Amino acid sequence: MKRLHVHVSVSNLDDSVAFYTGLFAVEPTVLKPDYAKWMLDDPRVNFAISTRSAKAGLDHLGVQVDSDDELAEVHERLEPMKAGVKAEMGTACCYAKSDKYWVTDPQGIAWETFHSLESIPVYGTGDEDGGDGAACCAPTTAAETETEGSCCAPAPASKNTTGACC
């Protein structure tokens, strides 16, 4: 079964957690000093917020799947579109280890399709060594990143940025 994923960058996590907890009428399933996530069943959505991006607002959208087969199915639908699909297998990001594919839609919105494999105790790969996690979900080249402050998605080649993650 697939679940819509929405990630919003926020400037004040506490205020945003209070707002979305009220909106969804449930506490976050994951709450960290810089990140919160609600795994909702009504509507079926993985809704996440974080303070990791330099710019507040929509960070990216996505589709979370429950199996490798479902991830392969979504990937097969994306490949023929020639949309520049970027694979990240076994990546550590947003307190989870996941296999994922990134693509940017015609409007420039980053879409992540992913299968979460397990929870991890850090935001991303940089955190284990005391870093800020800025390397998590980072595409291979800076030109592939979405917007300043975001590392989670490919973008039009005209953008050259670096920054934080999911």
Score class of each variant (00 low, 15 high):
I109P: 01
G22N: 14
C136T: 06
G124A: 13
L78K: 04
W38S: 00
V10R: 01
R52N: 06
P121A: 06
W102I: 04
A142Q: 14
H7Q: 08
H115R: 14
L61K: 03
V8Y: 02
E88P: 00
K37E: 03
E79C: 11
A18P: 02
V26T: 07
G108D: 08
D34Q: 07
I109R: 03
G90M: 05
G22L: 09
V63W: 09
N12C: 13
A142N: 15
D34M: 01
N12V: 11
R44S: 15
K100C: 06
D42C: 11
V103Q: 02
V17P: 00
A54T: 14
K97T: 12
D66R: 11
S11I: 05
S9I: 04
I109T: 15
V30I: 15
K159W: 09
V10L: 12
E144W: 09
G90Y: 02
K100N: 10
Y20R: 05
V74P: 01
T113Y: 09
A25I: 07
S11E: 15
K2G: 08
Y95A: 01
G84I: 07
H5N: 14
V8P: 01
H7R: 07
P28G: 12
E148D: 14
W111A: 03
C152T: 02
D105G: 08
L23V: 10
E128N: 13
H75Y: 09
K2Q: 14
S119K: 12
C137K: 02
G108L: 09
P139K: 05
C152E: 01
T125D: 09
K100E: 05
E118M: 15
H115G: 06
T29S: 11
W111R: 05
W111N: 02
F24V: 07
G163A: 08
Y101H: 13
G108E: 08
G149F: 01
G62C: 11
L4E: 09
S9W: 02
P33H: 00
D69I: 12
Y35H: 05
L61M: 15
A155W: 03
S116W: 04
T145S: 07
T51I: 05
H115S: 08
P139I: 04
V74L: 14
E88T: 04
A142P: 07
K97R: 15
C151N: 15
S119V: 10
K86H: 10
